[in-house]
């Protein structure tokens, strides 16, 4: 199914599946029960998220900053497995037929599950597409064949460091949307949106008519409004994962809902695009 961003700018929300935050009572949660993530995802969709990226937790998230690292560790400690994430995708699909659902993972859990078996299960769940953090176009032959066979959208990452030849290949093999990384680095909140982002989106547009979502370091309404000036959608990850970390399972859906509604209400006097600052970590 094509991925649609009916509002502008669109919002893509990343959630580490199975993370119940710091204050969940482990005794209350069965391993593999992703009810907390489900309620948060439903609240996010109802608050205006166009696409939910369901992050499969991984033991070695080398592209992620401390916030998502901690969330992954919590989700794994809670017993989260790939099969549980697939089940959650199916529940979300049944509950919200129009929302976009992307399965977001490092490659190894998928390889262990079996690429072909995974593609079947992902398609069966009703997910729209897949994003593999450590999969580059050159290595993607088998993966792309499976995505085509099962009708899933492969979303590739494009980076500010990608030369035009790579962007062209990324555009050619992506479907659904293209995920443009706003700056070099790992995931995490940032004070300001990198100046790299607009230039990258402009370069990608030469090769595609697919929607382009900008992610990494986007954490507030001003960032979202800025992204809206040159891209189709903004991806919010660490800011929401951090909010969930600090909330309880009972309060998290409401907190996330309020946060997402606020993202479409910029303060108006945003700081404008400025040069990247290393406020990370």
């Amino acid at each position: 199914m094509p991925i649609r961003f009916p509002q502008h700018p669109g919002l893509v929300v990343y959630l580490t599946a199975g993370d119940n935050g710091l204050y969940a009572d482990a005794a209350q949660i069965r391993p593999g029960d992703l009810a907390v993530t489900r309620e948060i995802a439903l609240a996010a969709i109802d608050a205006g998220a166009d696409v939910i990226e369901l992050g499969v937790p991984f033991s070695d998230p080398m592209a992620d900053g401390p916030v998502i690292q901690r969330a992954s560790e919590r989700a794994l400690r809670a017993g989260t497995r790939l099969q549980h994430v697939l089940n959650l995708a199916a529940e979300l699909r049944a509950a919200r037929p129009a929302a976009g659902i992307i399965l977001f993972s490092y490659l190894n859990p998928i390889l262990r599950y079996g690429m072909s078996r995974f593609a079947d299960a992902a398609a069966e769940s009703g997910a729209d597409g897949v994003l593999l953090t450590d999969m580059i176009v050159e290595e993607a032959g088998d993966y792309l064949a499976e995505m085509r066979r099962t009708g899933l959208n492969p979303v590739f990452l494009a980076a500010p460091t990608s030369p035009d030849a790579r962007l062209q290949a990324i555009a050619e093999h992506s479907a659904g949307f293209i995920y443009a990384i706003s700056r070099t680095g790992i995931t995490g909140k940032q004070q300001q949106l990198a100046a790299d982002a607009a230039a990258l989106v402009e370069r990608i547009r030469r090769w595609t008519q697919l929607p382009i979502a900008v992610g990494f370091g986007i954490s507030n309404a001003d960032h979202v409004a800025q992204v809206g000036q040159f891209a189709d959608a903004a991806v919010i990850g660490s800011a929401i994962v951090e909010l969930i970390e600090r909330s309880t399972p009972a309060t998290a859906p409401g907190e996330v809902s309020r946060f997402i509604k606020g993202l479409r209400q910029p303060s108006g006097a945003g700081p404008g695009m400025q040069r990247e600052q290393s406020a990370r970590r």
Partner: peptide, 26 residues
């Protein structure tokens, strides 16, 4: 770049290759 089966660049039999975030590819 072209996607394909595991290719010759940096392969030892079927092992090796490059599985990294796009940012590192350049």
């Amino acid at each position: 770049p072209k996607p394909g089966p595991p290719h010759a660049a940096g392969r030892f039999g079927e092992y090796g290759g490059r599985y990294v975030p796009e940012t590192l590819m350049a």
